[in-house]
């Protein structure tokens, strides 16, 4: 199996408490992976380290044929990996401006950016929201705008933090449909969840994070890839 990126020996403690001690985590490329773990098991923390937003105590990264420290890799992973918050943050601007944000940062000019944004809005079936103020959208709408804003940058890897947590069944279905289309576009995805159901059908792999030091395979799934877990301090 091909791996997009491999993290080794991820260690982080926060406020003196060891949160993660992950031996090895290889992200399958062009796949959708489900990451489960209880509340507080460290899913969000792991995602932030993986996307270059949170500095771990230690972590080495194998990416594009190079062996790098987290610090050396930071620039690349910030560029190629996009993290989406549990409750996505939209800037105090219109939906269009929110979606264009990353394009401008990548040096895209106004005309091109606008064209791409219009296409992206159609893709996500969000055209009717184009000129709404992003702060006034519903939670589900925000989620889809944030997903569109990330997708338009064609990241290598998307880390979605519990995207369906506060959604009703319809919205969940819609999101899982969007995820399927993202996967078809060749974007690797990891979706975290403290409950496995919704995304499970479209997930090709399943990692489970547990705060002790055991990897537990949820009984339902047989596609578990071993991912290591936080070991106790002593």
């Amino acid at each position: 199996m091909n791996h997009l990126i491999e993290y080794r020996n991820i260690v982080i403690s926060l406020s003196g408490k060891l949160i993660l001690n992950v031996n090895q985590l290889a992200v399958p490329s062009h796949r959708c992976t489900l990451l489960t773990g209880k509340n507080g098991s460290g899913k969000t923390t792991l995602f932030k380290i993986m996307s270059g937003l949170l500095k771990p105590h230690s972590c080495s990264i194998h990416y594009q044929g190079l062996d790098l420290s987290w610090k050396q890799a930071k620039h690349f992973i910030q560029k190629d990996i996009i993290y989406l918050h549990q409750q996505p943050y939209l800037f105090d601007a219109s939906v269009v401006d929110n979606i264009a944000y990353g394009l401008y940062r990548a040096g895209e000019n106004k005309t091109n950016a606008h064209k791409k944004v219009i296409q992206a809005l159609e893709w996500a079936d969000l055209s009717h929201l184009a000129h709404r103020s992003a702060k006034q959208l519903s939670g589900g709408e925000k989620q889809r705008v944030a997903l569109t804003r990330a997708r338009i940058l064609s990241p290598r890897l998307l880390l979605l933090d519990e995207p369906t947590a506060s959604m009703d069944t319809d919205a969940k279905k819609q999101t899982s449909l969007l995820l399927q289309r993202l996967k078809a576009e060749g974007i690797s995805i990891i979706v975290s969840s403290h409950e496995a159901q919704t995304i499970e059908e479209i997930a090709d792999h399943h990692f489970h994070l547990e705060q002790g030091d055991i990897i537990k395979a949820p009984a339902k799934s047989n596609k578990i890839t071993k991912l290591n877990l936080a070991k106790k301090m002593q």
Binding site: K48, G52, Q78, I82, P88, Y101
Partner: peptide, 14 residues
């Protein structure tokens, strides 16, 4: 909101 900073960075802002 700390998320504002993180969002900007993850979307490619220096």
């Amino acid at each position: 909101d700390r998320r504002a900073w993180e969002t900007a960075i993850t979307l490619g802002a220096r």
